[in-house]
Amino acid sequence: MGRGWRVIELENVAYSYGGGELLSDISLRLAPGSFHFLTGPSGAGKTTFLKLCYLELAPTSGRVQLFDKPATGFSRNEVARARRRIGVVHQDCHFLDHLPLAENIALPLTVAGRNVAEEKGNIEELLRWVGLEKHTDALPPSLSGGERQRAALARAVVMSPDIVLADEPTGNVDWEMGQRLLQLLVELNKMGKTIVIATHDLNLIRTAKSKVAARVLRIAKRRLQLAGADL
């Protein structure tokens, strides 16, 4: 994918909640097609880091660039358009509880004004891919934690985004399903997508490294470090 540009670039980014600084002086460039794990103790700021990447939070200082454009000056519509190119698997997956699963997974297409009926085949395939084909008409509250996480992954990739950010995507699923989700993310990466997975599951990272050239980022003491090659 020898493109010269960066899909996400952070430059001296700091973020502080009311109390004190959570992240400081973070600089990072994510090239297209790269695969990164993000680790660190709970509360270190993994979720905050991801939120900075998909523009839910604005940095207290420093610059965030998305797709080679400074995101700090994005209008609300530009933020919306950028998010269509970023698939996010949230830790606490938010769904529209009154809509059946298939419609929830198609939601990014719906809000982008795409014809969902035309994509029906893709959505069915996607549901099979995450093993939820039997739950097409189920309402999200009736799904288990693991099922919700798989559904969140399906929704994150339905727009075929350039970047997939996943926050503890295997937190609620068993080992086997975790492996399957990882396999899905690896496949997406092979299709050229940039993947960032926040996790503290070291086994998951080890398995991934045997399949893909993954790099590990660690957040510790408010800083982001590139972890050693071996784990």
Partner: peptide
Amino acid sequence: ARVIATLRLVGATDTY
């Protein structure tokens, strides 16, 4: 409020 937040996160514009 939650529906609105979810819609924003999957890329819905304010107008939509």
